[in-house]
């Protein structure tokens, strides 16, 4: 069985054959399978690590954008409420102005009207006084003609005037 292991009968040829076979096999495997597959494995691991990196990058970018958008939203919200409150205060001021103006106008008109009425009344009274005096004199002269003394005449006029003043 193991007779061929005895030195001298060892088949060196087989050894040589297997070594040559193995070398050719190694060369063929390297050419066909080893090189392209290890290259692909390397490429894949590179790609995966790249993908992980870029995913991380885009994640942080997205977070940054979201924060920025939130800040802008807050800012526009503030702006809007500012505008509204400003408009409200403007309107209030305008309203107050108009009301006070109107009040003033009304007061002035009222004062003018009262003054006019007073003047009118005074004028009318003065006119009436003159008219009464004239009328009295006329009446007096007519009565005098019916022998009326000067004292009676004066007393008569005064009593008339007193009656008018009341």
């Amino acid at each position: 069985m193991l007779s061929h292991l005895v030195i001298g009968q060892l088949y060196y040829g087989d050894s040589l054959f297997y070594i040559v076979c193995f070398l050719i096999l190694m060369w063929l495997v390297k050419l066909m399978a080893w090189k392209p597959i290890t290259k692909m494995m390397q490429d894949r691991s590179d790609k995966i690590s790249n993908d992980i990196d870029s995913a991380e990058q885009s994640r942080t970018e997205a977070a940054k954008l979201a924060k920025q958008r939130q800040a802008e939203l807050d800012k526009s919200h503030d702006d809007a409420s500012n505008i509204i409150s400003e408009a409200r205060s403007n309107g209030q001021k305008e309203h107050d102005n108009i009301v006070s103006q109107a009040q003033e106008d009304a007061n002035r008109v009222k004062v003018n009207a009262q003054k006019d009425i007073e003047q009118e009344r005074k004028d009318a009274l003065a006119n009436a006084k003159d008219d009464v005096a004239d009328l009295s004199i006329e009446i007096a002269s007519k009565i005098i003609q019916k022998e009326l003394s000067a004292n009676d005449q004066k007393a008569l006029i005064d009593s008339y005037i007193e009656g008018l003043g009341k």
Partner: peptide
């Protein structure tokens, strides 16, 4: 001038061919 064992040579070639086929 070297002695070869036919069984080894043939079997080795069979293994060689099988492996090349699988790898290919």
């Amino acid at each position: 001038g070297m002695t070869f064992n036919t069984a080894n040579i043939v079997s080795g070639l069979v293994v060689f061919v099988i492996l090349v086929a699988i790898m290919f």
